[in-house]
């Protein structure tokens, strides 16, 4: 039984560090896993990646997609990636704050701008993310190739929740991550972790009063069937990352590495297009299929939430450690600079 302590990620033998020695006809089969269903944001992204890189490489590279968490939930996929069980993965910070605690800054509310084009620029150019945070990932054997978003978080609820005062004691379903919990505690809510699969019946039976998700997920999970209000809060972005196993990546010849980086760069804008498209369509579907009342926050209401959310920022630094303050402050400064352009 062969069980070397160190996993080798490349299925085909070869793939030496020395690019010059690589035979031109060498072919590769890589596994790319994501958590979402057919036709979702992640799925379209990964399919695009597959399409472009297979074409670029003249069929030398073959991508096998594992959708819907078929080979494990988010945490397990991330661990598979760390250990070379898969080469690529869409790794979402919301699910991996238990592995890279620094990434929980994405759970903070009103961290980015309200303008998606500017957000795209931030994700592309930010040193705080692409260097400082990525180094934290690398320490955990995850190489982040790109940060991007699947859309902004919106709230669904039984009663209206457009002012912080209405949140007092409000049973909000969140993931069990302490930063997400802190973000809603900042409004005075009672964050209640419930497994994703139980959210629908939890809302239906009033065990929980509300939940947060991007529009495409709200539509997909039919939460609008059992909720009265949809507040377009844009409280934070559902950020995700395209990640690769670093040992595998480093073992590839230079030209193949470049091909990967190029492909990721080319679909950077595409990721923003799919999220806009899918979330827009999801909102239309929700409007068409339900009587749910759709509320947009006024400028004053947003300001009130923005103000209330600040206590969570301190909690982030306190919880993750002093070095995280540097990342957060850098990011805030970068956002300011781009916002004021």
């Amino acid at each position: 039984v062969g069980c070397g302590p160190k996993p080798t990620a490349v299925e085909n033998p070869g793939g030496q560090e020395n690019g010059a020695d690589t035979k031109p006809q060498e072919t590769y089969t890589w596994r790319f896993a994501h958590e979402e269903i057919d036709g979702s944001v992640q799925d379209l992204y990964v399919k695009k990646f597959k399409e472009i890189i297979e074409k670029k490489s003249d069929g030398r590279i073959n991508i096998e997609i594992y959708p819907v968490g078929q080979i494990g939930d988010a945490t397990q996929q991330c661990e598979l990636l760390q250990n070379g069980g898969i080469e690529f993965g869409i790794v979402s910070p919301g699910n991996t704050g238990t592995i890279v605690p620094e990434n929980q800054l994405f759970s903070l509310h009103f961290l980015f701008t309200d303008d998606m084009d500017k957000n795209a620029e931030i994700f592309k150019t930010s040193k705080a993310l692409n260097e400082m945070l990525s180094n934290k990932y690398l320490e955990k054997n995850i190489k982040v190739l790109a940060y991007w978003t699947e859309g902004a978080m919106q709230w669904t609820s039984g009663k209206p929740v457009n002012t912080p005062a209405q949140w007092k004691g409000f049973k909000m379903r969140t993931m069990p991550s302490p930063m997400i919990v802190a973000a809603y505690e900042a409004y005075g809510a009672n964050p209640t972790p419930v497994p994703y699969m139980e959210v629908y019946s939890g809302l239906q039976l009033n065990m929980i009063e509300g939940q947060e998700n991007p529009l495409f997920a709200i539509e997909e999970m039919k939460f609008y069937e059992v909720q009265k209000n949809l507040t377009l809060a844009n409280s934070n972005l559902y950020v995700t990352t395209t990640a690769v196993n670093p040992d595998f990546f480093n073992s590839l010849p230079k030209d193949i590495q470049d091909m990967i980086l190029e492909t990721v760069d080319e679909i950077r804008d595409y990721s923003f297009e799919i999220q806009a498209d899918l979330n827009g369509k999801a909102l239309d579907k929700i409007k068409e299929k339900s009587e749910i009342s759709i509320v947009e926050l006024t400028a004053e209401e947003r300001e009130a939430f923005r103000e209330a959310s600040k206590t969570a920022y301190d909690k982030y630094v306190k919880m993750v450690g002093p070095h995280s303050k540097e990342i957060l402050d850098t990011l805030i400064a970068e956002v300011k600079a781009i916002e004021s352009k």
Partner: peptide
């Protein structure tokens, strides 16, 4: 050992 190296913790 792997999990210890990679330092995963429980969420809450």
């Amino acid at each position: 050992q792997k999990v210890q190296q990679l330092g995963r913790v429980t969420p809450a």
